[in-house]
């Protein structure tokens, strides 16, 4: 099982905003890897912009099921600086709402 999740190869456009697709990627790609005890690398190469709802749906289910393990073991790469800021905001909100 490859531990890298390349978003563009999974149908995400350069503007990542489709929440249903993000949730599907979480269920089909991220959760099984976490279940297998692996670190998951989510590759944002080619993603130019992102809505906050996309990122929320990408990680919310994992955060709810695995808690701290999900925050520790899901790693993001090739992230544009401004997208990274959105991620930080969503992570903070997520930890408050799921606490």
């Amino acid at each position: 099982m490859k531990r890298i999740v390349r978003l563009r190869e999974l149908g995400v456009g350069e503007f990542a905003e489709d929440k249903a697709l993000a949730r599907e990627i979480c269920q089909e790609e991220i959760l099984p890897k976490l279940q297998a005890g692996k670190r998951v690398i989510v590759d944002f190469r080619g993603i130019e912009a992102m809505g906050q709802g996309f990122f929320y749906q990408l990680v919310a289910l994992a955060a709810e099921q695995y808690g701290e393990v999900a925050y520790r073991e899901i790693v993001f790469r090739n992230v544009k600086r401004e997208i990274g800021e959105t991620m930080v905001g969503v992570y903070k909100g997520l930890q408050i709402t799921l606490a």
Binding site: I41, E68, Y71, R72, I74, V75, F76, R77, V79, K80, R81, G84, M87, V88, Y91, K92, G93, Q95, I96, T97, A99
Partner: peptide, 18 residues
């Protein structure tokens, strides 16, 4: 949200340089 619930939060781990 923080106003409503002050607590410690994690930040996402981003590999390498942005």
């Amino acid at each position: 949200l923080v106003e409503a619930d002050e607590q410690q939060t994690y930040i996402p781990k981003i590999m390498g340089r942005n």
